[in-house]
Simulated assay, not measured.
Amino acid sequence: MTQLSEERAEQLEQVSARFRVIRHIRSKYARRHCQTLIIPPMPARAIAVCPRKR
């Protein structure tokens, strides 16, 4: 398999009046012989993402 790209997601977490960033990186792979794209699922988020109001 050949890696095409990767997706990154960051999450802000407050721990005892401090914040830390948790970075999730998942690589995207492609199979050359059948041209199939493989992307593993992202881990579940503790806080749901809210859509932005415009």
Rank of each mutant, 00 (worst) to 15 (best):
P43W: 03
V21S: 03
L12P: 00
T36A: 14
K53P: 00
T36F: 06
H24Q: 15
V15E: 10
A44T: 14
L37D: 03
I38E: 09
R26M: 04
I39S: 03
Q11I: 02
I38T: 15
I25H: 05
F19P: 00
A44L: 07
L37I: 14
R20S: 08
C50I: 07
S27V: 11
I47T: 15
R20D: 11
R32K: 07
Q11N: 06
T36G: 11
C50Q: 15
I38V: 13
A44D: 01
V15K: 06
V21I: 10
R52Y: 07
C34K: 02
H33L: 07
R32P: 09
I22G: 03
T2I: 11
V15G: 08
R23V: 11
E7L: 13
A44Q: 13
Q14W: 10
R54W: 03
P51E: 09
C50M: 11
P41S: 08
E7T: 15
A9L: 09
M42N: 10
K53D: 07
Y29Q: 02
L12Q: 11
E6I: 04
P41V: 02
A30N: 01
C34S: 09
H24F: 08
E13K: 08
V49G: 07
R23W: 01
P40I: 07
A46C: 14
V21A: 01
R31I: 05
I38C: 05
L4H: 05
K53E: 06
R26A: 02
Q35A: 04
R45S: 15
S16E: 13
R23C: 08
T36L: 03
R18C: 06
S27N: 08
C34Q: 02
A17C: 09
Q14E: 10
R20Q: 12
H24Y: 05
R18F: 01
A9P: 04
M42W: 03
V15C: 08
K28M: 07
V49E: 11
M1V: 01
E10S: 15
R45H: 14
H24W: 12
P40F: 02
A9K: 14
A46I: 12
E13S: 08
H33T: 10
Y29R: 00
S5C: 10
R52I: 07
S5L: 07
A17F: 04
I22Y: 03
I22L: 11
K53W: 00
I47N: 03
I47L: 08
R20H: 04
C50S: 00
R8F: 00
T36P: 00
R32H: 06
